[in-house]
Amino acid sequence: MKPDSVAHKVLSPVFLLVGVALMVVSLIMDFTGSSFSGRGAMLVLGLIMALTGLYLLPTLKYHRAIVYVIFLFPLLFAFAITVLIPLVLGVGYSFTDWTGIRFTTWVGLRNYVTMFNDPSFIWSILLTLLFVILNMILVNVIGFALALLCTVKMKLVNFFRAAFFLPNLIGGIVLGYIWQFVFNNVFIDLTKTSLLSQTKTANMAIILVYIWQYAGYIMLIYVTGLTQMPKDVLEAAQIDGANAVKTLFHIKIPMIASTFTICTFLTLTSAFKQFDVNMALTNGNGSVPGFMGSYLSNGTQMLALNIYNTAIAKNNYAQGQAKAVFFFIILAAVSLIQVRLSNKKEVEL
């Protein structure tokens, strides 16, 4: 269909006019508080018709530009409504007395001051940092060891890869309940009391489950790094008489430095955001008798769960939002450092 055909010349203005009219009418209804339930459908229909009219516009010169706009629109629109606008609002709300529905006054930095004077929040920060560091080390060491195992030429290798990766398919909530059963009913024969019943051991249990879920995934990435390594380098090392340990430390590890960066970054950010397992396994419970002079009952509560509970369970939205902004700042800083580091390394190579 040529752009200057009669169909285009007639259809385009009709679609544009009807579409815009529908949108205007439904918006007027929105603003006047109409209770007509079809007004939402009208708005969507009007938008689609207006875009169709725009697409059919009888122009050769601007057709490409119009197609670009229409192609970008759906994703950008969804992205703006779900990410950008809530982010801006969220940062703003953290300086108010927002209740989750409305706010009445600006309170400045009050939410932030309260939050840093709250021992249970400080505990969550420290616990999360410890959890992140331990996980980053353990998951990477175990994942790398499993990857070395899974790159040896033997019969069962494909089965091992699939088996180690399998836990990653299961969502955190279901996984948390399954492990609750394992700790409370199965491991109890070995541990006498359930690991989940005491704060210290419950935190160990969370780490254990996290490694169980995540090490297989990290292993797969290392396996890819190791198998993409040029064979001739390894052969040369073998001919020069390097043993397995020397090959590992002087050739394999330096050659997959970029894979290490990727895996460190992945484990770091995902450990920071850990929520599902934390919620399903302990729900953050656990007593800490004396911390900063007060008794805490959130001994196993990581940051993400602390934010959630502050806002949803305790119904303190402004406080929860301030914590979330702080959480965002930490993660952004970590990501920036990571990007810096990996850029530097790539230049050196």
Partner: peptide, 23 residues
């Protein structure tokens, strides 16, 4: 790099208000 936690609360209120507004 934006964590879900920082947008989740305003997201719900935005969706609630916008939904009410446009019907």
């Amino acid at each position: 790099i934006i964590p879900f936690q920082v947008v989740m609360l305003p997201l719900i209120s935005t969706f609630r208000d916008a939904g009410k507004f446009i019907g």
